[in-house]
């Protein structure tokens, strides 16, 4: 009796230790970015490094908000946030809609050429970015579209194969009886798809969407090239790359860290909001057998 209690408690302790370790591991480097973003150039170079910003002489806690002030007065950064939001949202939306169509076909319908289709889609994303860049640049120029749609379209190269593959595997895991019973009820395959299967894969959709969103959000090379002559369309990573010191070669490390913090937090908030969706999707999913 006593033993069981001890076992139960120690199990709990171990569990929470694991949770704590994961928590620290995931957050510590980010904390270091926050810490660095609150330091001046000379505080960043202090030896030994301090865990909170301190004055180099008196060692009293002393942090600066200058880095944040300067990124928020930087129009290009603010603009970049806006552009990134537009591009990533549109990219994710498009990739999810188009990708879920394809994934439904690949995961649930019977047709010839399924395996080749899957690998063909995957092969579109297997080159390193820089290798396809010049060809892609030529295509975008040929299509004669401006930078924002150009980015959205070109980001399909890495988001669309991803969403197709992930969603296909999820569609496949749904029991076939679901479709059959819907068909018996007289639903067309497409109705079955968007009325029954799609809601069931909601958690997968949200997850896939989030991951795709973030990869679009973080993309740098395509964006740098396509927005080169349209500075107004630059996204956040490009805006950060264009952060500079007061003179050439000087690198505003503190500002880069501040920008990293500012850019990451909205994404985390986004996840917190979508949590509800994930949980809602789960409860919906609980119906199935």
């Amino acid at each position: 009796m006593m033993n069981k209690q001890v076992f139960k408690i120690s199990k709990k302790v171990v569990f929470w230790c694991v949770v704590a370790i994961i928590f620290v591991y995931m957050l510590f480097p980010f904390y270091w970015a926050v810490n660095s973003s609150l330091k001046t150039e000379s505080q960043l170079q202090m030896t030994p490094a301090t865990f909170i910003p301190r004055n180099p002489h008196t060692l009293k806690v002393d942090f600066t908000l200058d880095n944040y002030r300067s990124i928020f007065t930087n129009d290009k950064f603010i603009h970049g946030l806006l552009n990134s939001t537009i591009v990533s949202t549109m990219t994710t939306g498009l990739a999810l809609v188009v990708g879920s169509f394809a994934a439904f076909a690949l995961g649930k319908l019977r047709f010839r050429g399924k395996t080749p289709s899957l690998y063909l889609i995957l092969s579109m994303t297997m080159f390193p970015q820089v290798t396809v860049l010049s060809g892609l640049y030529a295509v975008i120029n040929k299509l004669n579209i401006s930078a924002l749609p150009g980015m959205i379209l070109s980001y399909m190269i890495f988001t669309l194969p991803f969403t197709v593959w992930v969603l296909t595997s999820f569609f496949k895991s749904l029991p076939r009886e679901l479709m059959q019973s819907a068909q018996v009820d007289g639903a067309t395959p497409f109705q079955t798809f968007y009325k029954i299967l799609l809601p069931l894969t909601a958690p997968a959709l949200v997850t896939t969407g989030l991951l795709a969103f973030i990869s679009a959000w973080n993309e740098y090379l395509f964006s740098l090239t396509f927005t080169a002559i349209e500075p107004a369309s630059r996204t956040v990573p490009v805006a950060i790359a264009l952060f500079t010191g007061t003179v050439s070669r000087q690198e505003p490390f503190g500002e880069i860290m501040a920008a990293a913090v500012v850019v990451t937090i909205p994404l985390v908030v986004l996840v917190l909001i979508f949590q509800r969706k994930i949980i809602a999707g789960l409860t919906a999913g609980a119906v199935k057998g």
Partner: peptide, 17 residues
């Protein structure tokens, strides 16, 4: 939400951190 933080940090910047 926490476990997503590293993935959300811009790749180049995370290398710099």
């Amino acid at each position: 939400a926490t476990m997503l933080v590293p993935w959300a940090v811009i790749t180049v910047v995370s290398a710099r951190i």
